[in-house]
Amino acid sequence: MTTLIKQHPAIALGSRIGVIAVPLLVFFLCVLFVPRFLSVDNLQNVLRVGSILLIAACGQTGILIVGGIDFSMGSAVALLSVVTVILAPELGVALAFTGGICVAVLVGLCNGLLIAYLKLPAFLVTLGMLLVLHGLASLLSGGMPLDAAPSPGFLWLGSGHVAGIPVPIILALLAVLSLHGLLRYTLVGRSWYLVGTNFNAALNAGLPARRMVLLAYIVAGLFCALAGAILTSRVGSGQPNLYPDLAFATIAVCAISGIPLNGGRGSAVQVVCGTLIIAMLNNAVVLLNLTSAWQQLLMALVIGAAVVLPQLSNVRRRCVHLLRGNAQ
């Protein structure tokens, strides 16, 4: 019954334009009110910081589309960094990073197997994984950050340049393009939307629904691994507390960009816009010399607005109704 009344096409189009309009608006506000925001160096910095979040959010998007969620990303990148730094002296930089990346993909595989085939709730599986992996990373590193032997190779992913463009930005661009291609033009991407919209119907249509859910977690593991490798290279060390709230930041990105948590919807364009909003705001807060407490409050405000605004007419109707109900 509730599904019968759907958004009018015009509104759907409006919200599609809104996706791009909001980051533009934030950009102009920052240009107007934040000193030193509009400089090549600063904008490049915004993008470089945003690129790591963007790559991880690409993975989270795939998972949200199949109707899942992943809280374990923060610990996965930490374990990746610790493993990479430990392996680096013995195997060399390239193999060490490969090993670290394998670890993160393996984490995705474990999440996926537990959720898709043992039918455990994604929320609990990935929350448990967050704790387990953090424990593992702490054990391996002895609880302290391990410094990597300084070498230009180790730092290249995080601080290198190709044709004058920072490597993380190039990788983020590649990640977004591949996510876009995957979602729009492949059998797997299409299946993700179908599975996330109605799992039972997907089974009945003869789709390998469970395999598709598993695949979403593995692909997320890959994206997460790429983000973790860049992060490890940037900080040049293996840290059990590398980016503890990465998963929450990616979920915030998705919430801001209007990707629902109940599956079936989401696009690469949305993720880019959501990440840009958060990256610009983070940068603005630093430039304005606000404390981290203010930073968090502002972020909460923005996410709150992103969740409430699209529902504004509903919320208003409910408020009116509540007030009238009380008056009677």
């Binding site: 059998l187 939307y193 109605n198 039972n200 789709l207």
Partner: peptide
């Protein structure tokens, strides 16, 4: 509950079982 993908287009609903028929290498 068991058949339709509400929220996706009618075409995506109708073609759900024959995705392989119009794809190559995925």
């Amino acid at each position: 509950a068991d058949g339709l993908f509400l929220g996706l287009s009618a075409l995506q609903n109708a073609s759900a079982s024959v995705l392989r028929g119009f794809s190559s290498w995925g």
